[in-house]
Amino acid sequence: MSTIGTKLARLRKQRGYSQEEVAAHLKVSQPAYHKWEAESSRPTNENLAKICDFYNIDMEELLDENRSVFSHNTISNATILNPTNSTISNINMNSPELLQTLVNNQQEISKLIDMQGKLINELIKK
Rank of each mutant, 00 (worst) to 15 (best):
M1Q: 07
S2W: 07
T3N: 13
I4N: 09
I4A: 07
T6L: 15
K7R: 10
K7D: 05
L8M: 14
L8I: 10
R10F: 09
R10G: 04
R10L: 13
R12I: 13
R12V: 10
K13I: 05
Y17F: 15
S18F: 01
S18E: 06
E20H: 01
E20S: 10
E20Y: 04
E21Q: 15
E21H: 01
E21V: 11
E21G: 03
E21D: 04
A23R: 08
A24L: 07
H25W: 05
H25A: 15
H25E: 10
L26T: 02
L26F: 02
L26C: 01
V28H: 12
V28F: 02
Q30F: 08
Q30H: 01
A32S: 14
A32C: 02
A32R: 10
Y33M: 06
Y33G: 03
H34P: 09
E37S: 06
A38S: 14
A38T: 11
A38V: 08
S40Y: 15
S40E: 15
S40P: 12
R42H: 12
P43C: 06
P43V: 11
P43N: 06
N45A: 14
N45I: 12
E46Y: 08
A49P: 02
A49F: 13
I51Y: 05
C52R: 04
F54R: 05
Y55F: 15
N56D: 14
N56G: 01
D58V: 12
M59T: 07
M59W: 12
E61F: 05
L62T: 03
L63W: 09
D64G: 02
D64E: 10
D64V: 07
E65Y: 06
S71H: 11
S71T: 05
S71F: 02
S71C: 10
H72A: 03
H72V: 07
N73P: 00
N73A: 04
N73L: 07
I75K: 02
S76H: 10
S76Q: 02
S76N: 03
N77M: 03
N77I: 00
L81P: 04
L81C: 01
N82G: 07
P83K: 09
P83S: 11
S86D: 09
S86F: 00
T87F: 00
T87H: 06
T87Y: 08
I88N: 02
S89V: 00
S89Y: 11
N90W: 05
I91D: 01
N92P: 00
N92E: 12
N94F: 02
P96H: 14
L98E: 04
L99F: 00
T101S: 08
T101N: 10
V103N: 08
V103K: 11
E108I: 06
K111A: 03
I113P: 06
G117N: 12
K118V: 00
I120P: 02
I120W: 02
I120D: 13
N121R: 15
L123V: 01
L123I: 04
L123S: 12
K125R: 13
K125A: 15
K126C: 11
